[in-house]
Design a protein around this nucleic acid. Structure first.
Lengths: 165, 165
DNA sequence: CCAAATTGTTAGACATGTCTAACAATTATA
DNA sequence: TATAATTGTTAGACATGTCTAACAATTTGG
């Protein structure tokens, strides 16, 4: 694959593992190889092998047949991935009106490759839409109308907007 | 890498090669291995090897030391990639106000992983913003204000918008 | 038109990340 | 608690896509 990792220092795969461990280990409980394997849809040896790499980088604590836990550094990376994931999901679901499942799937892919700048802007965009009643609250509904009917809703008339003859 | 190809049948790399060939071969001229290698930032043997694979799939015509051309099928795939690329670039540049270079970079990554549904919606979104003076023409400027000042512009007041007490 | 520069190919190493098969440890249960 | 089921590991194959080194073809310029 041609450079697909943006400027982050983890690969998409390793970010997925960290994310999964964070989510599984969330409520105090410790993640298990089997769970990670199920969540990510890979076989257990793939997990073992990933854990080895992540341990070497001190992102994960893992002892043979034992517990799996993020180190503070690992947790930091995981939080970062998760926050990208969530912001992207919100964008697809709330701004574009895409079903939750597809929104999540796309977030899962894009979270690994989007630039920090675009990520930040996208997050702000969602905030803005949520916060601004004009550009915001009305926006999604007008947008929905457009999606459904293929043409602009009434209140999108050119009234008050200059237009070159 | 954990499944990163969405539901398309080409890998991100192969899509990149097809895209590059289409762009280079555009004005009738034929693409060269060296050019492709330069455009994609890989060494020539990587190109040769990719061309071999794409030839086997009848997406590219390539004879040793000779011309490189997309077949009709290859062209179709390439057009599709390019249209995703362009729509994404427009979104980042026009809707989010991101500089052209970063917009292109992100488009280059995301074009390979985004779902058809999200792609379609994103394209419609950009169209809508461009077409709808209210949700549209005014939107980017209000959004810019928000980006710069961190708070809502005047005309985003709640005037006329119901709000639960 | 021939030598030098450039371009292209082949062969094979390497990195990443997946998998299966075989075996080992742990846990659950009869 | 012995045994069966489950979970986890190791070893090694495999796929993709990159690279370098060496060589071959083509193109260019003296």
């Amino acid at each position: 694959m041609v450079k697909q990792e943006a400027q982050r220092d983890q690969t998409a795969s390793m970010e997925d593992y960290l994310e999964a461990i964070a989510k599984l280990g969330g409520a105090r409980k410790i993640a298990r190889v089997k769970q990670i394997s199920d969540v990510l849809g890979v076989r257990m040896p793939s997990v073992t092998s990933a854990l080895k790499k992540l341990s070497e980088q001190e992102l994960v604590e893992h002892e043979r047949y034992g517990h799996i836990k993020l180190t503070p550094q690992g947790d930091k990376v995981a939080r970062d991935v998760i926050s990208r994931h969530e912001a992207l999901t919100r964008f697809f679901a709330q701004a574009l009106g895409i079903n939750r499942e597809t929104a999540e799937e796309d977030a899962c892919k894009i979270e690994h490759v989007i630039s920090p700048l675009s990520m930040e802007r996208l997050a702000k965009f969602v905030e803005f839409i949520g916060a601004c009643p004009l550009g915001g609250a009305n926006f999604p509904s007008r947008y929905e109308y457009y999606l459904e009917h293929g043409e602009l809703p009434q209140d999108c008339s050119n009234k008050g907007v200059k237009k070159k003859k």
